[in-house]
Amino acid sequence: MLEINDLHVKLAQEDKPIIKGLSLAVPKGEVHAIMGPNGSGKSTLAYVLAGRDGYEVTSGEVLWNGDNVLDMEPEERAAAGVFLAFQYPMEIPGVAGLTFLRTATNALRKARGDKELTTPEFLRLVKEKGAELNIDIEMLKRPVNVGFSGGEKKRSEILQMALLEPTMCVLDETDSGLDIDALRVVSEGVNALRSPERSMLMITHYQRLLNYIVPDKVHVLAFGRIQKSGGKELALELEQSGYAEYTDAAA
């Protein structure tokens, strides 16, 4: 279970607060969506959960299965099961996709006390998981994400998620930059990973993604805090009314 209690965050270099008293709970096995207008703090929340530098938590706590996530290094969070699917997955010139995936998979297995995979075992696993996402092994011989289309980058993120077996997935604008076919493939990949052991937090601007990955709950984030929570129908409401009541004009 993910519990965020009265979280306050600002940029490390500036005094302006971005997240101002956010509280949220995602029980084990549930998929929650966070929707909100641009600038509401959605991506900041994603980065703070993953432990990126440049943000300062001024108060509040984030607990994952009772442990304080904010005290952990990014790699310790990954070992504890936290995974962020990036809005803009990074390109790593010179590092082959397979090398990157094997290094990460085995680093996590080691940290979690599992036996590291041999190269044949790993390759079998990648082929199997990659096939479900239309990812060919040849594509993974190229440097990580270099020269990939938007859709290929997102599929590659989901493949990482499948291999690294996280229990708390944060998906940051996973639908951005995807055409309808790519969106379907990515969504099917995510849906295949839904399980009673795995919680997910989907951050999105548009309702569209939620037609494919149906959430258990929807939260509206604006002005740095959750303004409203409800069932999946809340997303449809937002699609009708827009974010007008959650923007500065309405405030």
Partner: peptide, 17 residues
């Protein structure tokens, strides 16, 4: 950071890069 978020420890990430 991208490497670390995938569980690769900082020192190992720097060596890899």
């Amino acid at each position: 950071f991208y490497c670390r978020s995938r569980g690769i420890p900082e020192a190992e990430a720097k060596v890899l890069l």
